[in-house]
């Protein structure tokens, strides 16, 4: 390794002289920095385009609960609320299923099933969002209205969260569809976290007389918990930004909701469903300001997830 480095360093020094090398390295560095600049540009442009709305509504935008283009009052609170509730629902339903998939694929599955099943689960990510939306309108929505929501209501109907007449085009349906859409992300990342657990951990549990499940719980899940947590956060990042499938199933009502069986709106779905009808300049500006909020939220979530997954992988390597 050391020898390679010196060799590389020396050849590089010698070759620095070639103008072609300088030009190519300069070009690729310039392009790479331009890509970094693009992210900065996105932020700046969003801020500029929302400037008027930001000036008009300030921080009160975040707590305002009315979206009315006639009286020109715009507030983001119902959409932030909708985003939080649908994402929480998606995680609540999606994380256990994804974790189950990851455990099956990395610990329990017969070897011949592993690769094809992994591949098929990943195909869930290849279906475009709008097709999920279409399926949500015509298949999942009616199924929710007729079977699932009354069923949930029969068991949990005493909670305010599950009251009202199920309509199938509501927050609950949007949450379920989000859960389905984040499964490939969470299961793939947590599967990688489980695969990164050294076999010596499994052997430690097995040699104490643990069953296969106990081995998974004791030797594998505990070891990989930071990575699994990071996977869930990555899924959350995907859920908050998901647009079309939610827009098509959530019922599009720009207000707070008390029950999951009521229509609502997330930040992303509000932007998408109002964009072409928005009244410039203020409503459009307010939508762009919503987009800025969404960008910051997703930026925060993804940096956090990266930190978690990155730290886990470092710890994992250190232990080996």
């Amino acid at each position: 390794m050391h020898v390679f480095e010196t060799l590389r360093g020396r050849t590089r020094l010698r070759l620095r002289a070639t103008p072609g090398d300088l030009a190519f390295e300069g070009l690729s560095t310039f392009i790479a920095l331009a890509v970094v600049g693009l992210l900065v540009l996105i932020t700046v442009i969003l801020y500029l385009a929302a400037a008027e709305s930001i000036r008009t509504y300030g921080l009160g935008f975040l707590s305002g609960s009315v979206w009315d283009s006639v009286s020109q009052r715009f507030g983001a609170a119902p959409f932030i609320y909708g985003m939080l509730v649908t994402s929480a629902l998606a995680l609540l339903l999606g994380v256990p299923v994804s974790l189950g998939i990851a455990i099956f694929l990395s610990e329990l599955s017969p070897a011949w099933l592993r690769i094809p099943l992994t591949f098929i689960v990943e195909l869930l990510a290849a279906v475009p969002s709008v097709v999920y939306g279409l399926w949500g309108i015509f298949i999942l929505g009616p199924a929710m209205r007729v079977y699932i929501e009354p069923g949930v209501q029969a068991v949990l109907g005493f909670l305010p969260l599950f009251q009202g007449h199920p309509i199938g085009s509501d927050v609950f349906t949007a949450g379920v569809i989000l859960a389905i859409m984040i499964i490939p992300t969470i299961s793939a990342v947590s599967r990688e976290a489980l695969l990164a657990v050294p076999d010596s951990q499994r052997e430690a549990a097995l040699s104490l007389g643990a069953t296969r499940w106990e081995t998974t719980r004791l030797g594998v899940l505990r070891y990989a918990r930071a990575g699994i947590f990071g996977a869930a956060i990555l899924g959350l990042g995907r859920a908050v930004g998901e647009t079309m499938a939610v827009t098509m199933t959530i019922g599009n009502r720009a207000a707070f909701f008390g029950s999951l069986f009521e229509p609502g709106q997330t930040i992303a779905s509000q932007i998408a469903s109002r964009w072409l009808d928005a009244v410039p300049p203020l409503e459009l500006g307010a939508l762009i300001q919503l987009g800025l909020v969404l960008m910051l939220v997703s930026l925060f979530i993804n940096l956090f997830a990266r930190l978690m997954v990155g730290r886990f992988l470092r710890v994992g390597e250190g232990a080996e």
């Binding site: 540009l41 996105i42 930004g241 998408a272 987009g291 997703s298 930026l299």
Partner: peptide, 25 residues
């Protein structure tokens, strides 16, 4: 490392935000 971090963050940016960006740009 910084470039990689930015690129990673960009892959995770919601596509609707990118739509707003292109329009606003």
């Amino acid at each position: 490392g910084i470039v990689r971090l930015f690129v990673d963050v960009m892959t995770q940016t919601p596509s609707i935000v990118v739509g707003i960006f292109a329009y606003s740009f």
